[in-house]
């Protein structure tokens, strides 16, 4: 086991990378957002609610959410083969499942809300950045939502539990990466993935750390949404 008592980037163990959030970056979409955490940049576009095709997928009881996660070819050092792959399909699915508890699509039977997440620059934590961007874009599209969702990865590198791993840390031998998504108000966990080894004590600590980080992300998300409309409401 490698000892790891100082982070490569010089950050504190509970310190996230610099975060930036913006909404309304894609004009023709119903809602869109950009979410950057360190060198990882995710953009999300939301279309709908609109009629769902193919028809057999329609649900007369509720609208459905359809997420699509993809990485651009130039987002990673070695060119990624374009198009969906096994990893992308999985992440699309977990993103959808992590957003589903907050969106309320009951009032849109037979309809679909499409979410497209594109990673334009990757340095670990892409699915978390994608979820944070998607939540922003959904809110921006005016979809009824119980809450916002923020996501961050926590993990164990060497002996230490830390937040927001970068690529360098992720590649350390025996490093465990745990992406966690948390709702804004109630701090409910909507996504938790883990492969690798971690003790119960460390996991509890990691979740605590993630909740703390997500709270900060949530504040940034709220600010991004409000700033986009601040000037418009002021004088009315």
């Amino acid at each position: 086991m490698t000892s790891y008592d100082k982070r490569f980037s010089g950050r504190k163990f509970d310190e996230m990378r610099e975060i930036e959030a913006k909404v309304g970056i894609i004009k023709r979409a119903d809602g869109s957002a950009l979410f950057r955490i360190g060198d990882t940049i995710a953009i999300a576009a939301v279309y709908g609610p609109r009629e769902l095709h193919p028809r057999f997928m329609q649900n007369p009881e509720t609208g459905i959410l359809r997420c699509n996660y993809d990485m651009t070819t130039f987002s990673v050092p070695e060119r990624k083969r374009p198009g969906p792959n096994r990893r992308g399909v999985e992440i699309s699915l977990v993103t959808e499942k992590s957003l589903l508890p907050v969106v309320e699509l009951k009032q849109f039977p037979n309809a679909v809300v499409d979410v497209f997440i594109e990673i334009i620059q990757a340095n670990s934590g892409t699915r978390c950045a994608g979820i944070s961007a998607a939540a922003l874009a959904l809110a921006h599209a005016g979809i009824p939502m119980k809450d916002l969702v923020a996501a961050v990865s926590v993990g164990k590198v060497g002996e230490k539990v830390l937040i927001d791993l970068d690529k360098e840390e992720e590649d350390v031998e025996d490093a465990t990466d745990i992406p966690i998504a948390v709702t804004g108000r109630k701090q409910d966990i909507t996504l938790l993935q883990l492969d690798g080894n971690v003790t119960k004590k460390d996991l509890v600590e990691a979740i605590k750390l993630a909740k703390h980080g997500c709270k900060k992300i949530n504040e940034i998300q709220q600010k991004a949404l409000k700033d986009a409309y601040k000037s418009e409401v002021k004088n009315e």
Binding site: D30, G31, P49, H140, G142, P144, E232, V233
Partner: peptide
């Protein structure tokens, strides 16, 4: 549950959406 502007009428609270279809 929406992005919008709050309007309070006596004791009824609503949010007028700023975006959306």
């Amino acid at each position: 549950n929406k992005l919008g502007v709050v309007s309070v009428n006596k004791n009824i609270i609503k949010v007028i959406p700023l975006t959306g279809r």
